[in-house]
């Protein structure tokens, strides 16, 4: 499914508790995003609901288990399930994270059940390029790859995550999913916590046409001396909204998603977060339009 719009597309993450709301209430967002693995069943009510949602909204499939940066190969059973789901749902976007998830324990394949950070070097970049190429070939679709929140740092990394993703995108023809909150979490945990600066540094490394989606989320504030955990359990913070404006100014009208995965609020709260994103986007683009008009007028005046 392809979705075209002159306006910016704003969506929300859809979880089970909101199934009734999304099906019974009038369309309030432009798309919904679901976690692919939640629909890996062969059938049943959840898949049936997803098919009904699909009639009403474009769907973005967001995977959380693929582990594109794993040294271990992604098992075919996983890719086959994902491919089957993609064929039946025909999402307009498909995304994953720049992390690793697969490994071995006592000779047995294991899945980490979490988005584990990777070292950012040319070797790990080669490995991820290989996996992304393979997955895109199997799926027959372009992947959008997301920056992650990390809770440990690797001394061996000599590329920044932004440089890593920019190069990955260039070499594999994949796109980037820019998660502003993940930049904010890493900024607080590993940098000086100047989120505006961290977002600015990050986005300026990414080529203008490389970003295909933006994620916005909120998380619980850490206790003093503790690291922030990206729990997706709060409204989007002011810092993240500000980072969103910066990203829109650089990348333009990029489809944007509000993520909320824990302590889920009422559907109406999610919608109001989406409305806020739309308002910010319109303000940014109206301002840009106004600036452009003023520049054009001044050029005309000079020429006259």
């Amino acid at each position: 499914m392809s979705v075209e719009s002159k306006d910016i597309l704003i969506g929300v993450g859809l979880r089970h508790v909101h199934f009734t709301d999304v099906l019974t209430q009038p369309q309030q967002v432009d798309f919904v995003e679901v976690h692919s693995e939640n629909f890996f069943g062969e059938g049943g009510a959840a898949l049936s609901v997803l098919n009904q949602v699909r009639e009403k909204y474009p769907i973005s499939l967001h995977s959380t288990s693929m582990g594109l940066g794993s040294e271990q190969d992604i098992p075919l059973h996983y890719l086959n399930r994902l491919s089957k789901l993609a064929q039946s749902i025909d999402p307009f976007l498909m995304s994953e994270h720049a992390c690793f998830t697969w490994g071995q324990q006592q000779g047995q394949l294991i899945h980490s059940g979490d988005l584990l950070p990777i070292i950012h070097t040319n070797t790990s970049l080669d490995r991820m390029c290989e996996q992304v190429d393979k997955v895109q070939e199997i799926l027959g679709r372009q992947l959008i790859i997301e920056n992650v929140s990390a809770y440990i740092k690797f001394d061996q990394s000599y590329l920044s995550e932004a440089e890593f993703l920019a190069e990955l995108s260039r070499r594999t023809d994949s796109k980037i999913l820019l998660d502003i909150n993940n930049i904010a979490v890493n900024s607080i945990n590993f940098e000086d916590g100047n989120i505006k600066q961290s977002v600015n540094d990050y986005i300026n490394i990414l080529p203008i046409n490389s970003v295909a989606q933006i994620h916005l989320a909120g998380c619980t504030t850490a206790l003093p001396g503790e690291l922030v955990v990206d729990d997706h359990a709060r409204p989007v913070s002011d810092h993240v909204w500000q980072g969103y404006e910066q990203a829109l100014q650089r990348f333009g009208k990029i489809p944007t998603l509000i993520e909320w995965d824990n302590d889920l609020p009422e559907w109406s709260v999610l919608i109001s977060e989406a409305d806020k994103a739309r308002h910010i986007a319109r303000t940014v683009f109206n301002k840009n339009l106004l600036n452009q008009t003023m520049i054009n007028k001044s050029v005309l005046t000079k020429e006259l």
């Binding site: 996983y78 047995q108 294991i110």
Partner: peptide, 10 residues
């Protein structure tokens, strides 16, 4: 019995 499917539901 560690998970090995990439889907907690399995």
């Amino acid at each position: 019995y560690p998970p090995n499917k990439g889907d907690w539901a399995q």
